[in-house]
Design a protein around this nucleic acid. Sequence first.
DNA 1: CTGAAAGCGCTTACAG
DNA 2: CTGAAAGCGCTTACAG
Lengths: 336, 336
Amino acid sequence: MKDIARKVGSSIALVSYVLNNKEGRVGLEMAEKIRKAAEDMGYQPNLVAKSLQSGRTNSLGLIVADISNGFFSQLARDVEDEAAKIGYTVIIGSTDENMEKSQRLTEAFLNRQVDGLIIAPAAGTENQLKILKERKFPFVLVDRYFPDLLTNSIRINNFESAYEATKHLLSGGREKVAMVTYADSTMAHFAEREKGYRLAMKESRSKPQLIQVSYSNMQAEMAVQMKKWMRPECQPDALLFATHSLAISGLKEIRQIGLRVPQDLALLSFDENDAFALFDPALSFIRQPLATMAAEAVKLLFANIRDSSRPYHQVVLETELVLSEKDKKKPAVRTL
Amino acid sequence: MKDIARKVGSSIALVSYVLNNKEGRVGLEMAEKIRKAAEDMGYQPNLVAKSLQSGRTNSLGLIVADISNGFFSQLARDVEDEAAKIGYTVIIGSTDENMEKSQRLTEAFLNRQVDGLIIAPAAGTENQLKILKERKFPFVLVDRYFPDLLTNSIRINNFESAYEATKHLLSGGREKVAMVTYADSTMAHFAEREKGYRLAMKESRSKPQLIQVSYSNMQAEMAVQMKKWMRPECQPDALLFATHSLAISGLKEIRQIGLRVPQDLALLSFDENDAFALFDPALSFIRQPLATMAAEAVKLLFANIRDSSRPYHQVVLETELVLSEKDKKKPAVRTL
DNA sequence: CTGAAAGCGCTTACAG
DNA sequence: CTGAAAGCGCTTACAG
């Protein structure tokens, strides 16, 4: 800008006005000269300087468990596209479900002066969120949330989704439907999925059975659990997976053990994944509306950025039970 | 910093020195007071101001085709981890293989004053890269590269990988190995994969056969192509997929058509994917060393940032042919 | 219609 | 050992 001003013999202020299209104030002739010089010299604004001045960076932080996880990478992509529409850039960080990493990421992003955060919070991060609330810093939770902490949030109807999915499995003539979920998870969205499952089981007078593995040692524990449960004398006849990661991990073991699907075992999972379509038979699954989730998250966040004392909004989205061809056509019959 | 200075009754300069541990110059007593005040007041540095002053943002831009693609999301995760080690934050953008989007992203990232870029360049973006070169802006290409444009780059040995993979398919008693790749792609890495395939075919006196689909309309074209080629009279007995996206798309059609793997068709793909392990039989694949790729990319970029006239480095990494159990045990026999 | 000046939050030579 | 000052590249009241 300094160079442009020197070249056309004006003040830096005028250059700023023209280049920001605030030129009610600037002479037409001068404006034209400035625009031309800027073009010729290939002027590109320094957004860092702009941010320091304006207090806004037009960037937002996205904090997820793991960006290499297909669920979050798709969400990230959708957030990227939504953010781009309003001129925002996205910085991404992965917590690995670890409180300390979450804390570090949050601080790093705040220091970088992001205008807001979209967070799929890790377990145990309520306090970090509370502090953000107290500071009136704009953020929106996605996927997960804390029932006791009022914030902006986007989530799916976890309870109903799990309930319907379990009902579907039961309606196929299955009785011993087990749910595969995370051990020792305190996250409300998993608890709700479990509750939905339990209610459906209760209504059909079946005994609920959880198969649990830890997040950090999933595959090894899945191997142990599957070997333990998939013996003829106690074997479930259907499994509901709480996430696609659990399903993929579980499918590997099921394949290994040599169980037949759906004869021995019917399967249904939360989330969508290429592997589900390619498994034989294709898995039915609960599709989350990720694009909508991203759009709503960005919308809420942006509204919160504009008005930091805006009331909290909670958006609950509906899922879709996507049945594979085989699941649609032939209600399963236990053949064991 | 101003508040801290006022509270302890020092100048802002001193606060800066102490908080940046450059305190050979500051009295011990004063230093201690400042540190305590900073702690009490919960001081967090404004990195935007720091960046404006220093001319460095400690952030890097990662430009890929699509962050929701498993290959790139894993790469992004590895880059994130490597960058974090040296205090860098990663901004991610997706080009959708589109030149204009690539241009916009590059400009946006430069305006945000990223210290450098890691780019999986889209076709036709040589000129954008040339401009970066002329400006001596630090960047590193990953995955793809342009043979006629000397830059920092990390890539795999595409030619040899495809050659070995094709050899493997041929060694199983197959003859009509076809390669599935992108139509009208001008990217060198795909050309090299094709060359490796062609050489292996030539050496075994087999006729090469390409099956090509476009990136933007992959699934629909894959359906057409697969129906066209997978008829008994002309059907290949093995397929080499140039990327995991092509493989997943192709597998869906193969499943649809009802071909038996490996009896009718042996399969092998570049890249790794959960779906490969869960397909029956599990697919053999060419594993790219993504973590190493990310580590080398960040290392090269960082060296380039420190020394912008550093000579260009080209790193070529080796891949690993990962054979599924079935591929290892029984060499396939044509049973059609 | 235009310019000089202050300021965003920090760093760092410079002078004492 | 410490403070006053200039400056990073921009924006925007203010005064003319």
